[in-house]
Design a protein around this nucleic acid. Structure first.
Lengths: 351, 351
DNA sequence: GGATACGATGGGAGCGCTCCCACCGTGATG
DNA sequence: CATCACGGTGGGAGCGCTCCCATCGTATCC
């Protein structure tokens, strides 16, 4: 193999045409080899590959994108400021899952933050500019117009979680209903009978489903669902404290609490401790998310785990499938895939 | 303004040509307006802008990249697996700093992980494919061939930290020498006289500079630099423990320790405590990085802070400058910018 | 041996843009 | 009144690739 050119200082890179000349074939043939078309003889293929290696040829992405109308790149759009993105292990796991699928392809992942208003507006431009073949949307709020914008632009997209019962976009969610149910079933099995619930904001779809699953488990066990034992939080630690205080005031006899997130469980724990309740002896506590704090809490928190890495994988698979279809074959709105992955209870010391 | 087309279902987006037709001008004129050229009359500019708005025109990136040979995108290349990237606040701050500068431009940031070997190899292809105008390299190891590969490809690049005294690439580093010096000066001011040092691996440039600064401070104060008081660690907690144990065995009379990283300081702290030494009463402890653990340590750790956000900003500025030059004007190897930002001592309870 | 089929190949057209040169008209200048 | 300068404009050429159609050769069949 000949020495490869250092292209530095503005030297131009070899083109298809030059590879073709070197290999003594036509442009079309080289293109076929590069793209792995089967309609090339073994001899020719070898000659072309040799020429590619000698010249250190790499296809120009821009030219390919322009001619073929595809970029071989997808974007992960994070509608949050960078800080939050890095702070939450959720994103890390999603990216990891995405990466696992993309590693087997030639598709590149672009991370895009759209935290601020300005960046938000620019995103439309960005997608309109056909920089990417598709979009992965994570951490989308119920009232976020972004998904609909993306959909209207005709850009294939998959959303993590869903915004409501009838999500218009393709989505991958975890089984929030099952998660809530299994948490409460676990508490019942532990012999608890007066089970309180700190929910997330009930206009958030996932939070409502956790709540529904919880009620379902109680009903299935023949328990009455007592409104006095339900208090709404806001996914913050402070919200968890407030909710716990209210529950304790109304029902000092409660012997278990299911919180819709680990962070709220952490808040609840503080209030319980201040009230002199031992965990789990007096009150069993179960959280949701299986986050880092669950493991580090004292006592370690029983929590419901979502398969986040797996969600990242499935989102990516779904998106690549959608992209692979020709535009006219793409699923019509309303007939998109809605995937729901199972959750799992991780039992620790708090229950 | 007319209703904007929803392009969905494979509908094509408007082109420059169509905007030109709509505005009753030529292609060139529209291009000039889009790119903010001053050589357009106010009348014409307004007409074109109206047409752009009516059609919802967005320039096609691929076509622009092909014609102009620039992508308006830069890549942040992280030669680490995703996990580490998210785990370390360092990266979060860098990305934040980069984002601050890019927010004022039309340049897009792409995050690229090159942790695995496979991804590593693909990166060359990626850069060769002219997907980006330049590259930001962070967390590069001394023996990493990546920077030279990038340089050889003629892709403008800026590296965070430097690999050695004579870094070939443009770089932005923090003042490790000054950081080491100020840490030790602080200990001397506190009246400590027997100051031990746990260094990072001395083949890592930054670690060596911290060590050098430390020695310089000692020498300036008229202290002899006692080899018995220097022990090399490896930036891990375990390494910090081992080093501390060795130092304590050799010199039980030491009254201060400067560790080359917070994590090593954390390891040292455990050993000191096991040996019954109180911090800071018996032994003062200073770390490096001002990481989260510094604040959360018991007692809170005095540490040297690097201006990481600022480093991200400066790296980006440097890179954009380099990109703005025509290729033939770009700095020759050896005459690249080497920027060093000041470090700062954050005094807490451990000293 | 000629018609047929099909795999392999070459290269024209065109993707949407920027660059640049030619050209137009106007007002200043000799 | 001819000449020049210059701001403003139109549009050809070309970026490097993919797509596709025409073409060529060879194996296959009657």
């Amino acid at each position: 193999m000949a020495e490869r050119q250092p292209y530095g200082r503005g030297g131009r890179r070899p083109t298809l045409e030059q590879v073709a000349a070197r290999a003594g074939v036509g442009r079309g043939t080289v293109s076929r080899v590069i793209n792995g078309s089967p309609r090339v003889s073994e001899r020719t293929r070898a000659a072309v590959q040799a020429a590619v290696a000698e010249l250190g040829y790499v296809p120009n992405t821009a030219a390919r994108a322009l001619a073929a109308d595809r970029t071989d790149a997808i974007a992960l759009v994070v509608p949050e400021p960078e800080r939050r993105f890095f702070a939450e292990p959720y994103f890390s796991d999603i990216v990891h899952g995405v990466g696992l699928v993309l590693a087997e392809t030639e598709v590149q992942l672009l991370l895009t933050f759209a935290g601020g208003d300005r960046e938000r507006r620019r995103l439309g431009q960005y997608l309109g500019a056909q920089r990417v073949d598709g979009v992965l949307l994570v951490s989308v709020h119920a009232d976020d117009p972004l998904p609909d914008l993306v959909d209207q632009l005709g850009v294939p997209a998959v959303i993590s979680g869903r915004r409501s019962e009838d999500e218009a976009l393709s989505s991958v969610d975890s089984d929030n209903f099952g998660g809530g149910r299994v948490a409460v079933e676990h508490l019942l099995q532990r012999g608890r009978s007066t089970i309180a619930m700190i929910t997330g904001p009930l206009d958030v779809y996932g939070a409502r489903r956790r709540h529904d699953g919880c009620r379902a488990a109680l009903a299935a066990a023949g328990h009455r669902v007592d409104p006095e034992l339900v208090e709404q939080g806001d996914f913050t630690e402070e919200g968890g404290r407030r909710a716990m205080a209210a529950l304790l005031a109304r029902r000092p006899d409660l012997d278990a609490v299911f919180a819709g997130s680990d962070v709220m469980a952490a808040g609840a724990r503080l209030v319980l401790r201040e009230a002199g309740r031992r965990i789990p002896e007096d009150v069993a506590l179960v959280g949701y998310d299986d986050s880092v704090i669950a493991r580090h809490m004292e006592p370690a928190l029983t929590s419901v785990r979502q398969p986040i890495v797996e969600m990242g994988r499935e989102m990516t698979r779904l998106l690549l499938d959608e992209i692979a279809k020709r535009p006219e074959d793409r699923s019509a709105p309303g007939r998109r895939s809605q995937l729901v992955l199972p959750t799992e209870l991780v039992v620790r010391d708090s229950s």
